[in-house]
Design a binder for these strands. Structure first.
Ligand code: ZN
Ligand code: ZN
Ligand code: ZN
Ligand code: ZN
Lengths: 130, 130
DNA sequence: TTTAAATTGTTATAATATAACACTATGTAA
DNA sequence: TTACATAGTGTTATATTATAACAATTTAAA
């Protein structure tokens, strides 16, 4: 783990749940699962999610409105992320490729502008689904 | 224009609106604007949007839930897209870079898998906002 | 200690998107 | 032309995702 922040109670509960999940979790699915732990309202979930994203413990898969724990020590606090997504089984994997992140971080657009923050989602079929 | 499909009435109305917009448009904003043309329900908008995305006339900016007309003849029917997004003014620009698309299309993950479909969103500050 | 910042709990509501069903237009093939 | 399939439409209702607003509490510094 590369972020040593101390999580609050709600943040820890929600992070643990996402971290244990084999697949990205959606906010209301999280809500359902943590109600037995006293987290009863959507906002409690979204606030924890926002914070966890901010500090880089989890990422949002934008095309799926779902959240996944970070398992890539080189993604600079949630600012530069890449994922592969299976279009059949919806399996999502965080890509940790030094060359990819180097290429994207150094990429310059037509105006010569560089971007340290990006999100890349690759779509295809995973090994199992091919 | 690189896609010669004939659009239906609703698709044409909604495409024209998005195509003229200087910025990405959200579904309910589109709905508001086309009500005078007889399109009254969210589903009519979402169905046209789905089709327009499918045939590559528009793209969805996933991190913003908004839609923008395609102005990049090299993005293969909506399958391989890249955008820059200004975090202050929200200006969105489609990136047409042969080297970027080549790099990403040829990118192989750890399992040697290639992906012809991807969506990349860069974040930063545009010229004006810097 | 007192003060500011962050977090929590709660209710209500906004914003985004789809299900289900009946109907209509359009194109293709017998 | 008629039959059939496919795509598109109109409509109502509903599901899903996310935030506003406000009061209270906890935490961490100054
Ligand atoms: Zn990560
Ligand atoms: Zn799969
Ligand atoms: Zn395009
Ligand atoms: Zn800007």
């Amino acid at each position: 783990m590369h972020k040593e922040d101390t999580l609050t109670k709600n943040q820890q509960i929600i992070f643990d749940l996402i971290d244990k999940s084999p697949e990205p979790m959606k906010a209301y699915s999280i809500l359902h699962d943590v109600q037995k732990k006293g987290i009863k309202a959507p906002l409690q979930v979204y606030r924890a999610l926002d914070k966890l994203v901010e500090i880089g413990k989890i990422h949002k898969i934008e095309s799926r409105n779902a959240f996944i724990a970070c398992h890539n020590s080189s993604c600079q606090v949630s600012k530069a992320t890449a994922f592969s997504i299976c279009e059949i089984c919806e399996k999502v994997t965080e890509i940790s490729s030094a060359s990819l992140s180097k290429y994207l971080t150094n990429f310059k657009d037509k105006d010569g502008m560089k971007y340290s923050k990006y999100n890349l989602e690759f779509f295809g079929l995973c090994k199992k689904c091919r």
